[in-house]
Computed example of a mutant assay.
Amino acid sequence: MNVRLRPYQAKDFDFARQLYFQTMRWAIERFFGWDQAQQETSFEAWSNPHEVSIIVADEVDVGWIQQRLDHDAIFLGSIYITPSMQRKGIGTRVIHIILDLARQQSRPVTLAVMKINPVLALYESLGFRITHQDEHKFYMRSDPAED
């Protein structure tokens, strides 16, 4: 399977929004309750088109990733993959793309993941380590230069 990232375009907004709600609703409902209007507002506030890339697998849009340069690190803010395409190695390939970019730039990669998210095991298998935590999230870091 060929996996690549392509630049976000304005036409991708609905795809990104719907995929976020589809993949994260269960966790948001569990911790905070679901308020559709509040979630719409929240999504528009934190999703930044300049930081988003669309994940393409075999020329089909299957997800999106949001990342930014945060101080000296690449912060992986979000990664969402269509449920029917999960567990096929796509997320792993995308994270390898980010880790390779970080290696080229001699930067660490950081992220935050909800404690109940099963993707935690994937991040650990890819070399991320927990640096700290709060009530709901683990904060992780990978130092590609040390890999």
Rank of each mutant, 00 (worst) to 15 (best):
M1Y: 09
P7L: 07
Q9E: 15
A10I: 05
K11E: 12
F13W: 13
Q18I: 07
F21H: 06
Q22F: 08
M24C: 09
M24F: 10
R25I: 02
A27D: 07
I28T: 13
F31W: 09
W34C: 11
D35G: 11
E40H: 10
A45G: 12
S47V: 13
N48G: 14
P49W: 00
P49N: 06
H50T: 13
H50N: 14
E51D: 14
I55V: 15
I55R: 04
A57V: 06
D58G: 14
V60T: 15
G63I: 00
G63C: 01
W64M: 12
I65N: 06
Q67I: 04
Q67G: 05
R68A: 15
D70H: 14
H71G: 09
A73G: 02
I79H: 01
I81K: 03
P83N: 03
Q86I: 00
Q86R: 01
Q86K: 08
R87H: 08
G89Q: 11
I95N: 09
I95A: 01
I95G: 04
I97P: 03
I97G: 00
I98W: 03
I98S: 08
I98Q: 04
R103Y: 03
Q104I: 08
Q105G: 09
S106L: 10
R107P: 04
P108I: 07
L111N: 07
A112H: 06
A112D: 03
M114N: 15
K115E: 00
L120Y: 13
L120A: 13
S125F: 03
L126R: 11
F128N: 04
T131Y: 12
Q133W: 01
E135Q: 12
K137S: 06
R141T: 12
A145L: 13
A145I: 09
D147W: 14
D147P: 08
